[in-house]
Design a protein around this nucleic acid. Structure first.
Lengths: 174, 174
DNA sequence: GTCTATATTTCGATAGAC
DNA sequence: GTCTATCGAAATATAGAC
């Protein structure tokens, strides 16, 4: 599957030949289903968005506070089990996503990273809070790397609970 | 510079033509200084190791406890200002590094990620501690992404201090 | 829908002049 | 040390039969 190859080897190191091979098809067959390599990539991108946009929708409405970010991140963590592979692929291909994102003049989707990036550079928010929000986000996303790596023997619910606990220690201590 | 291109666009999406172009040279001139594209990549890898191996050397000696990891991460954070670009490049090219690392049967260097990976899957360590160590590490590495992105107006010392404070909240509350 | 070609481009790498 | 020129391999993508 393309998802696995992009995660293991990275987008730029994965060829259509490899993808087709793992699928038991030929390259030509892939072009019946997708018009380009980028489109395969973007299809996976869209799948993740469709799965998480409802969770992130609150960003449109609310003016986020520290507690608001905590609540959002906690909801995000709860969605991890069902989206682990997609998020992991995304995390391991940030450069490739940015490139396709820029070239394609991608439609304005309610992207959590855009709102986050805006908050992190917002001079209205105290520096300490901005740093904490950034730390919490990277902890949350990076935690996934280990969720598949070192924590395979750990119960999913326990992992979720511990991640929430860590988020609270980072954001809730005020 | 190759360092910038690998960081912006990723190793697999960067061609030698682009690197040479940004340097004001031709591809052929690059091959006088490096024997292959991989070697350019590994030269940057080695530069980071030479800069951080002294900090990580403690891993060889000690049997790490939770407090040991905290101390190590704090020292790591202090080394950030001088190694920001290299670490950022490393973080954004994990897949490419793993590939070169495997193919080249890279010499056993005291890599922090190997020791970390071992600790995360060590059944002797309580699950809660394993998760906290993983969270702290990803927070620390991911914090770099924002250090260059949203925190350009933040004083470097203040950022370091706040990162340490966050590390303590994650690892020191026991 | 999937195949066997094949076209086209780009890439990493080399040869040899200066 | 850097250049021009080029090679060979591999990649993306297409054409057309079945």
């Amino acid at each position: 599957m393309a998802l696995d190859l992009f995660t293991e080897r990275g987008y730029g190191q994965t060829s259509l030949r490899e993808i087709a091979e793992r699928l038991g098809l030929t390259k030509a067959a892939l072009y019946y289903h997708f018009s380009s390599k980028d489109e395969i990539f973007m299809a996976l991108h869209r799948r993740l968005h469709e799965s998480l946009d409802a969770t992130v929708a609150v960003l449109e409405d609310e003016d986020m506070t520290l507690g608001g970010w905590l609540a959002l991140f906690e909801r995000f963590v709860e969605k991890f089990p069902g989206n682990r592979k997609l998020i992991l692929m995304h995390e391991r291909n940030r450069t490739a996503f940015e490139k396709v994102h820029n070239e394609g003049h991608d439609q304005e989707h309610a992207d959590i990273e855009e709102k986050l990036s805006a908050a992190l550079r917002d001079p209205e928010i105290p520096v300490r809070e901005r740093i904490r929000i950034g730390c919490a986000f990277s902890m949350m996303m990076g935690g996934l790397l280990f969720a598949g790596d070192g924590f395979q023997d750990v119960d999913a619910d326990e992992l979720t609970a511990e991640m929430k606990s860590a988020l609270q220690d980072l954001l809730g201590a005020y």
